[in-house]
Amino acid sequence: MDLALDSVSVELAGTRLVHDVALKASAGQMVGLVGPNGSGKSTLLRCVYRALRPATGAVLVGGDDLHALAPREAARRVAALPQEHSAEFDFTVAEVVAMGRLPHRRGFGGPSDGDLGRCTEALRQVGAGHLAERGFLSLSGGEKQRVLIARALVQEPRLLVLDEPTNHLDIGHQLEVLALVRAAGPTVLTALHDLNLAAGHCDLLYVLRAGRIVASGPPAEVLEPGLLAEVFGIRATPVRHPGTGAVHLLFDRLRPDLASSDQI
């Protein structure tokens, strides 16, 4: 399902944090948001999964204004994994994942056999099947992250919004989770700090700085040394992955004496 952000601005406590963002993601694409801390990535994502309303503009999912949809319909279209989450009660892992099926259930009955089967399979896919009967609050940060990704997948969204989905994960699970999300089929909008993960897994990147889009396009075109020096204050050397051909970046601190040099 297509996603379009049409001149979206976001304000909090009277301060505009995101300015006139235009963004598009075609059905099945993985689109990444990258930028330094405080650039507005999480704020923009919160607007996309309805935790915030845009001050101006619209979030269009499948051509419909997401904020005008009924909550159940919106939940059938969009699932989110926020950067921060909390649980007041110590549900089991199986119960937490089953919550992802709520938009598809009727009445007040419990999950069906089909729902439970989807939940079991999602936990298996993220490598967390052995945790099903554990209390969620007893898990490590990485285990919790995998469980929450499973919950988002069983929601069967058409758009999946992920805010730093690889937080707390070791490198093996980082690669597995991003590949799994990609293979699951929904359109994905994700914020990523790791530029090499973004380059290797995203079809398009949008670079945010101070709440504005300053560059967009395929990773190999966007992640060029001049832009990275300007936005992140780093010296980057792009190389090509010998197997996939994807751009990979080697980083150094940007020395002041090189700030205006052609070597940047």
Rank of each mutant, 00 (worst) to 15 (best):
D2S: 14
L3S: 12
A4N: 04
L5S: 05
D6L: 14
S7M: 08
S9I: 08
T15M: 13
H19A: 06
V21S: 05
L23H: 08
K24G: 15
A27E: 13
G32S: 15
G35I: 01
G35T: 00
K41F: 13
S42R: 06
L44C: 13
V48Y: 04
V48H: 04
R53V: 04
P54T: 02
T56L: 11
A68K: 09
Q83T: 03
S86Y: 14
D90W: 10
F91H: 09
P103D: 10
H104P: 03
G107V: 00
G109N: 04
S112K: 04
D113N: 08
L116Y: 01
A132F: 10
G135D: 06
R146E: 06
V147Y: 06
A150Q: 11
E156A: 15
R158L: 12
R158W: 04
V161G: 02
E164L: 13
P165I: 07
P165Y: 12
N167A: 15
L169R: 03
Q174C: 13
E176W: 10
L180C: 08
P186A: 12
V188H: 00
T190H: 11
A191D: 08
D194F: 13
L195P: 00
G200D: 05
C202F: 03
L204G: 01
Y206N: 01
Y206F: 14
A215Y: 06
V222N: 01
E224N: 09
L228G: 00
A229K: 09
V231H: 01
G233W: 07
R235G: 04
H241S: 10
G243H: 02
V247W: 03
L249T: 01
R253W: 12
R253G: 08
R255H: 13
A259K: 03
I264W: 10
